[in-house]
Simulated scan of single mutants.
Amino acid sequence: MGVDPTMSSQQILKQLSNHILFRSMHYAFIALQLRDELAKSSAGERSCLEMRPFVLWLTHILVSYSGDILVNLLLGTLPLEPLSNYHDVMLSTFAWYIIFYSPFDVAHSVARTTPFRCLATPVAALSQVLHIERGVHLASKVYGKNSLVPVIIIGTVIGSGAEFLKPVAALLINRCQMKPAAYIKLSTNSKLAIAISWLYLLQLNGSQLLFGLSRCQLQLYALLALMCFKFLALFYRLDHLIWLLENRLCYALFGGLYADLTKFFKRQPIPKCGSFTKFD
């Protein structure tokens, strides 16, 4: 089927994100991440897969629709409305099943290869950019363009909803993970969501910092930058360098350096040679 030349790039990206192949790869990648995390956290992965399939399916559905659920909750609409799309839920369920329970783990082995991850990386980047854009503009309509904090929070939540629902997901698979408690960790994905939300907020208010970029242009540039970052993180561990930089900044600005300097100046002086102590 041909593409209408009068369509904007934004409409083309939205149609692409709703394509069945795009959605299938997106849900398969989420299922792969869930299984890899389960394998790292649980000693008995196979027993967990065999004994608790419904819990794992529920966790997968929760993580797949986490951004939409949280944003609807924050905007005062029905939080489970995204689950009313029966065909999309069935597609997500099918992707989960072939990753977790395909014969001889063929689908899981293929999904862990580098070619599949290279295909899934731009899919994840496009999905994140479109979700953040939708969240920022919905929040600006409800709270107003000048409400900086609500807009940034909603853009961040919809861009990294799975991170904020991890405590609930961990409670669902607590027996599998053998963990006593769940926690929220602001991952690199969440930090990227915060940065992209700020860019959309600046564009929404017509800031000159973006040099007059339109909404469509900003979407394309953000998508390109996010894809480049994800590929660099996949092959060169760029996210580890960002973590090191953040660690150094936290050490310099949030008390680590001050604590070390305090210990240095309060330490006991070393006695000089030839001097007498009270033990002599």
Rank of each mutant, 00 (worst) to 15 (best):
A162E: 08
S41T: 14
L80Q: 07
I152V: 15
S17M: 02
M1W: 04
S275N: 05
I20Q: 06
I12R: 13
E37N: 12
F279G: 06
S197I: 04
V3C: 06
L119D: 00
K166Y: 11
S84Y: 05
F211P: 02
V71P: 00
F104S: 08
I154T: 06
T121M: 06
T114V: 05
C118V: 11
P150W: 02
L38F: 02
G76C: 10
Q217P: 00
L58S: 11
A252R: 12
P5W: 03
Y258G: 08
N146Y: 08
K272H: 13
P269Q: 02
Q203I: 04
H26C: 07
I20V: 15
Q268I: 09
T188M: 09
L32P: 10
K185R: 05
K14T: 06
F276V: 15
R23S: 09
L241R: 08
C176S: 10
D260W: 04
L148I: 12
L148C: 15
A124C: 08
V106M: 10
L38H: 06
L62I: 05
L220I: 14
H137M: 08
A39L: 09
L234E: 11
I98R: 02
F264D: 10
R237N: 13
L223A: 04
V142L: 07
S92E: 05
S9I: 14
A139N: 01
F116W: 09
Q219M: 15
V110P: 01
Q268S: 14
F94A: 05
L218S: 03
E37L: 07
P103C: 04
Y27I: 02
K179A: 15
Y258W: 07
G206S: 06
S42V: 03
K185D: 04
K278V: 14
I69E: 03
V89M: 13
F235G: 03
S214T: 15
Y97I: 05
H137D: 06
T156R: 01
C216P: 00
F94L: 11
C273K: 11
L238Y: 11
I61V: 15
K191G: 05
F94R: 01
L34I: 10
L257C: 13
R52K: 14
K40G: 09
F231H: 04
D280H: 12
M90L: 15
M178T: 13
L148W: 14
A43Q: 15
S102C: 07
N205L: 07
I12C: 00
L73W: 14
L70M: 12
C273L: 12
T156M: 08
